[in-house]
Design a protein around this nucleic acid. Structure first.
Lengths: 284, 284
DNA sequence: GCCATCATTACATATAGCGGAAAAACGGCA
DNA sequence: TGCCGTTTTTCCGCTATATGTAATGATGGC
């Protein structure tokens, strides 16, 4: 089986496949999701309506409402709809739960300057991890969570793995059970390998190298743990395989760990979010 | 009059003051805006309801719907509502209209590496400018648009000014008329100074130094212009006053201009977005 | 352990949202 | 230029959905 392209990968993460939403709010959200999944160019009305599972008439009415609300823009002559910059700006403030990003920013800057690599801040979101912040180092990097706001399946990539591995037993199992099919779908893991990897990370306290999903790319990540040793987030650096050689690795891990430990007490422990089961995650 | 703090500044940019919205979608959006304005900690139901101008019962129902949709999270024990990480992740893709961000990213990286300063990418959004992307340089910087997703009044800061100054006459006038009261509200400008500044920027083709809003901070910005010389975006660097001295300035401007000109033809010209008048902007 | 504040549920009413169908605008293509 | 398929937009009657008031249940502070 072939490894999926980035585009395929991210497409599969979108939960557009809602079965006929009812009520105007769910429909509107379905449209927003659809537009988000459409990429930067936007979508035609008919297409968006079909994808979101809404009649064209409703889609038209709803999209107009959303334009009135400033959440959606429409290209003046092509009629293409897209999410608005204002929507982007509005939601950008959601990427700072309990001021996590603000608190971690200086650390990311320091790490990126000290190590010369790209640094990421990741948090869990359901069965995925989301990149909250990123500081570019001089070395150019490709990564699953390259972009701020980018989503990866929990367990894919070092930062994501660091979070998963440090979840408490029951949650960890729940996530593994949910994610295994998603991962196998890509032919990237078999279960034993995956579970071994998780154990290794949990015991060593950091995730390194990772799965070699991206050739020549390597990374290290450590979790930020609260007093009950629950993972609040992960700090991760992305670099090239050659830069992360055997003699440099321990140093990097130590630097990361020190920063993560210093960070932990500063973070106001926010509770696990309340969520309806089975929502907001892709179904395969 | 005192210069406003960052917090005050950004608070004033939030358009939460909708007069009793009717229909479930406008109410929901009002709640989302309210939560966005509340910062990272989130809000209680009652408070959010009052701020959004909705009865507590409605707020409760709507917020539950939004949680079902994955757009809102609720802290398990404190009951505080906040925008969800998934919402953040969803909207992050709105920050790439016509793939503008993807196209500019390599340039930002190159500039940040070459100049050693922090580089910003800004686009217009109504009467404001929004930061789409940012690459940190080694020198630490404070800026109005520090954060990705951050909003500034069109005309404040170099990047924002570069866009405003290069708008076609009629639009420029419209923006100036709308923004003058907002600017005067902060006691930062008088009209003649503001207009002179705009003229200077328009004629020279770049904005430098700027208004000295932030002590010791300086910046340069150039617009990215399409074939009709309409500003599509602005590239801006932020640095310290001393780093941006008289002898370095011309070099920096030239580097920026060259990149901006090389970028222009790559960008698929997207039309002015269709918007209802008088929406989505703060009223003072 | 009490009281005040806040969160949640119940319910009857009206209204806002719904889809089908028709009309109008658009965009090719010859 | 004129025709036709597609897409967008409007209209309208029906229904379901969203609404506020009011009552109940939970929470937290003193």
């Amino acid at each position: 089986m072939m490894a999926p392209s980035f585009k395929e990968y991210f497409h599969l993460m979108d939960d557009v496949s809602d079965g006929r939403p009812s009520g105007s709010l769910p429909r509107a959200v379905a449209l927003l999701r659809t537009l988000a999944a459409s990429g930067g160019e936007g979508m035609r009305l008919t297409n968006a309506a079909a994808t979101a599972g809404v009649t064209p008439a409703s889609a038209h009415r709803l999209l107009r409402m959303l334009i009135d609300e400033g959440m959606v823009e429409q290209d003046a002559r092509s009629k293409y709809y897209r999410l608005s910059i204002e929507f982007f700006s509005l939601a950008a403030r959601a990427g700072n739960p309990s001021n996590l990003r603000d608190i971690c920013r200086p650390v990311l800057l320091r790490l990126s300057a000290a190590l010369g690599d790209t640094v990421f801040l990741l948090v869990r979101s359901g069965f995925d991890a989301v990149c909250l912040d990123r500081c570019e180092g001089p070395v150019s990097i490709r990564s699953f969570t390259n972009d701020i706001g980018g989503k990866v399946i929990l367990g894919v990539g070092q930062g994501s793995m660091a979070i998963l591995a440090h979840l408490p037993e029951s949650e960890r199992e729940e996530v593994i059970r949910f994610n295994l099919p998603r991962l196998l779908h890509f032919g990237l893991f078999d279960e034993v390998f995956f579970r071994n990897e998780i154990e290794r990370v949990r015991e060593s306290g950091f995730a390194a190298r990772g799965s070699g999903l991206l050739p020549d790319m390597a990374g290290v990540a450590v979790p930020i743990l609260d007093r009950e040793r629950r993972p609040l987030a992960a700090i991760s650096i992305g670099t090239t395989v050659e830069r992360l050689n055997a003699e440099r690795l321990p140093t990097v891990v130590q630097v990361l760990r020190r920063e993560a430990e210093a960070l932990a007490p500063k973070i106001n422990p926010f509770d696990a979010a309340l969520r309806r089961p089975g929502q907001q995650v892709g179904s395969y």
